[in-house]
Design a protein around this nucleic acid. Structure first.
Length: 467
RNA sequence: GGCGACAUAGCCAAGUGGUAAGGCGGAGGACUGCAAAUCCUUUAUCCCCGGUUCAAAUCCGGGUGUCGCCUCCA
């Protein structure tokens, strides 16, 4: 079986074949760290986190790079507003990024390069482009000469004439062509700047990603991805820069997530409907956010609302309960030999279906459906009077394996109860034996307030922590 | 004007030729001292109109509707 991915460049699903056998270089455009990241960013980060985990699960040696844009107009403006330096602003929100990302179960990339630490490489690439006639200087700025790059517009599938006709951007007199974009920007008073052959200034946005991806992953990377609105101009420009400089394909597969809307509308400052992960975290389980994102195919547009998040929360709880119940049973059973049951056969079938779903352009929605089906089978199995520890263990490892790909069921430790809680549970059991339901229920209620849920099963009392 | 996406049950959402996965919610039932968790049953002919085909949610044509990109927004 092979993995198939939808490639924005060719606008169809293709068989995935990396440049070097067994190894994958993957780059996703990261946040500009001038604020907390929003729920739309979160979708992209989660999607690429899962893609990366899945490719690793399929046996590839994956190197994943995600940058931080720590110098640009927005950074400068925000730093001025806050009365701090651009570097201080970056530090603040990079730290916030890692906190929010961790809450969402997003693993750190192998490398998180910052633009400001790669200025010499950018200058070198700009120089390369100038040497090839693909860039020109104009009053301290440097622009990419799009007319000299015939492939320009191919990624976004836009004929050049149309790009020009549709251009709403005001014409900059210094550009030779409205489509030309800045590689280097001359310093304005008060702005951070670096020395360059063209005077003091700073890099354009697009050049940083070209340079950082090539530095860490080589001239041709396997997967380059990001948010949907990066197709044009950002990725189109990156591609032009990288291919202009090397003459080689910049990326084999371009992957883009779909939009995340709020109330059927795009998130935008003017509508005032920006939702930050930082705020959502205070009210909802961030794991539910993750589940929500994976419950639809990554390329489809999705709508986001608190109501939908609660639906997701309920769905995730069902899966979590299945895993809790398996773990609890494992804890209660003594080791045994092998157990031969239908459930073992279903495990094998479900594993195959999970892989088939994810192989098909990372169809996490279908993959989740497989987990739900197995959850039901496992729950049924747990109702047997004498389940086999061997089988329970196998079922549990299925969830841990697939959960490892999707980023769920991470807290393997069953956890322990403090002595006081243990004592309460014991006292409740005694009360139940006496049929003193009032006392038993009082204890159960008390534990509830401590976040401990008790469930009575044929095999004895079971407890779990409320999420 | 150019380019594109989407339209499946109350809600979310897979499925791209063979007679509709899964989840949330609802209803009924089982289990339980009561719960919780769980299980069982139930809840759709896939926007409309044509066409191709033995057979279409799935392909083709035409509509309608929603959304997006073409602005250094993920």
């Amino acid at each position: 079986m092979t993995i198939r991915v939808y490639n924005t460049l060719t606008r169809k699903k293709e068989e995935f074949v990396p440049v070097r056998e067994g190894k994958i270089g993957m780059y996703a455009c990261g946040p500009t760290v001038y604020d907390y990241f929003h729920i739309g960013n979160a979708r992209v980060f989660i999607v690429f986190d899962v893609i990366r985990r899945y490719l690793r699960y399929r046996g590839y040696d994956v190197t994943f790079v995600q940058n931080f844009t720590d110098i640009d107009d927005k950074m400068i403006k925000r730093a001025q507003e806050l009365g701090i330096t651009v570097a201080e602003l970056a530090d603040r929100y990079i730290e916030a990024y890692f906190q929010d990302a961790a809450a969402l179960g997003i693993e750190k990339a192998d490398v998180h390069p910052k633009a400001t630490e790669h200025i010499p490489g950018m200058i070198a690439q700009i120089q390369q482009l100038m040497d090839k006639g693909l860039a020109y200087e104009a009053e301290g700025d440097v622009y990419f000469r799009t007319a000299a790059f015939p492939d320009y517009g191919r990624l976004s599938n836009q004929p050049l004439e149309e790009l020009v006709a549709g251009a709403r951007v005001e014409v900059d007199e210094r550009k030779k062509d409205p489509l030309d974009f800045a590689l280097w920007k001359k310093q304005k008073p008060g702005e951070p700047a670096w020395d360059s052959p063209w005077g003091k200034g700073r890099p354009g946005w697009h050049i940083e990603c070209s340079v950082m991806s090539m530095q860490y992953l080589g001239e041709t990377i396997d997967i380059h991805g990001g948010g949907p609105d990066l197709v044009f101009p950002h990725h189109e420009n990156e591609k032009a820069q990288g291919e202009g400089a090397t003459g080689k394909p910049f990326a084999r597969y371009w992957l883009h997530a779909g939009y995340l809307n709020i109330n059927q509308e795009k998130m935008s400052k003017s509508l005032g409907n920006f939702m930050m992960v930082r705020d959502i975290r205070e009210k909802y389980d961030p794991q539910a956010v993750r589940f929500f994102m994976l419950s639809a195919h990554y390329r489809n547009p999705v709508n986001f609302s608190p109501d939908l998040l609660e639906q997701a929360q309920s769905g995730l709880e069902r899966l979590n309960n299945a895993v809790y119940n398996l773990r609890d049973m494992l804890y209660k059973l003594a080791p045994d030999g092998t157990g031969a049951t239908e459930l073992l056969e279903k495990l094998t079938a479900c594993r195959q279906r999970f892989i088939a779903a994810m192989d098909d352009d990372f169809n996490s929605a279908e993959a989740l459906a497989v987990l739900f089906e197995l959850a039901r089978d496992a729950n049924i199995y747990l109702q047997e009077m004498a389940p086999s520890r061997f089988v329970v263990e196998k079922a549990l490892s299925f969830f841990e394996e697939t959960g490892g790909v999707l980023g769920f069921f991470a807290d393997k430790a069953r956890g322990s109860l403090d002595a006081q809680v243990e004592e309460l549970i014991t006292r409740r059991e005694e009360a139940r034996r006496r049929k003193d339901w009032t006392a038993a229920d009082a204890i159960r209620d008390e534990l509830q307030t401590k976040g401990i849920v008790l469930e009575d099963t044929p095999q004895g009392v079971r407890w779990r922590r409320k999420a």
